[in-house]
Design a protein around this nucleic acid. Structure first.
Lengths: 216, 216
DNA sequence: TACGGATCGTACCGTACGGTACGGTTCTGT
DNA sequence: ACAGAACCGTACCGTACGGTACGATCCGTA
């Protein structure tokens, strides 16, 4: 509820970046308080003073990383079908790029690994700080397309989740599992194009038809 | 390569079930060798004798669990559109049921948490022993539907991944993250129906048309 | 009954981690 | 220039875990 101000000092931000580096290198086990203090040239006492305990440090890492990549919403330029499709493809590319990035994978693995523990809020934090920005951007994009009559849907959430599924498929989980040969950034463009094509088949409005495609 | 025979003795299977129970209750941290020995009334020495080390135990748990739920492939009955659609919906329901189950979530969290470590084969094991069965079943189903002229596709893998994405969307990752309010087994049926509807829009063959729907 | 392998319960070892305490040092505001 | 806060480096503590060792016990077999 409260607009938590994650105003970390530059020093703290540098430490959090070092922590991210350790996490990327060796996973959660490599992110120890002593190791971080050594890598970041700070004292363990400062770590506990700044972040409370280890869980607080992990939460701070997520907040910090999320604050670095704020999702930008494209301003309202004249939107025709070509631009709309381009924006969707760009969104799909960005989504695959983000989900397949080292930092995103490491943080998601961290949060998922902690999800079993009772009081862990890391998963919720990750969704709140990371996913919601993406959702907003896509939601605004879909809404703009609908208002221009380029697509039609009953429920925006449903349409968005379908788009998400068409883009990501099972890639995210397989990347999280570390399956070899799944991360192919050079194929993201093709996947994005195909996904948007399929999305238009499901939700697109034909120019020479008056009725959009309705499900059920 | 070698058809590894996971023939565990009944005693070992009981121990592995106890280990699964501990994992479900308290996550990976709760699954300690001492704790398992106490819970299963066996000695730590036996654990190390049977499974080598802790990683071997985790791998054995995955193999054991996978051996319990062998995916059955439906025999070749007369396949019309109605039956085919029913089979797809059943598959979608089963998929959501499996992915949203406690055991699947716990094992996936375990494997994902270990995915950062270098030598971890848990992710590959989970895919090999768990996912491949599902993939086979779906692949056979799609192929049967294509041969009957009920659907059309260029690449079966692509079609299958699209179906998977339409069914699962982002539910799996969100369930893995432990997001509240995501696990709704009572909604699986609706999701399955909608996904299959959309799949038919994308890959279905109209009765009164000669050309199937081609992508690109 | 006697033997041997498998297993149990427990104790033990080394290590590594989270968290705390403290003296020395640097930074900052006046 | 001086005082106080913030901070660093290091040492320290308690705990918990992975893995090993060993005597006692169960059980199948001859």
């Amino acid at each position: 509820m409260s607009e938590m101000q994650d105003t970390f000092t530059p020093r703290q931000r540098a430490v959090l970046d070092k922590a991210l580096g350790l996490l990327l290198e060796g996973g959660e086990r490599a992110l120890t308080t002593a190791g971080l203090a050594r890598a970041a040239n700070c004292s363990k006492e400062s770590l506990y003073k700044w972040f409370g305990d280890r869980d607080g440090l992990l939460a701070a890492m997520i907040s910090h990383q999320a604050s670095k990549v704020r999702a930008q919403i494209d301003g309202g330029e004249r939107l025709d079908l070509g631009r709309f499709r381009t924006h969707l493809v760009d969104f799909a590319n960005d989504l695959l790029q983000v989900l397949g990035g080292d930092v995103s994978l490491a943080l998601n693995r961290l949060a998922i690994g902690q999800a079993s523990r009772e009081g862990s809020r890391l998963g919720a934090l990750l969704i709140e700080r990371g996913r919601h920005g993406i959702d907003k951007r896509a939601g605004a994009l879909l809404e703009a397309g609908r208002q221009r009559g380029l697509i039609a849907y009953h429920d925006r959430e449903t349409a968005y989740h379908t788009l998400y599924g068409l883009i990501v498929r099972d890639l995210h989980v397989r990347m999280l599992l570390g399956e070899a040969g799944v991360r192919r950034p050079e194929h993201y463009a093709v996947l994005a194009e195909e996904a948007v094509d399929q999305f238009f088949v499901l939700f697109g409005v034909r120019k020479n038809e008056t009725t959009g495609r309705d499900s059920v």
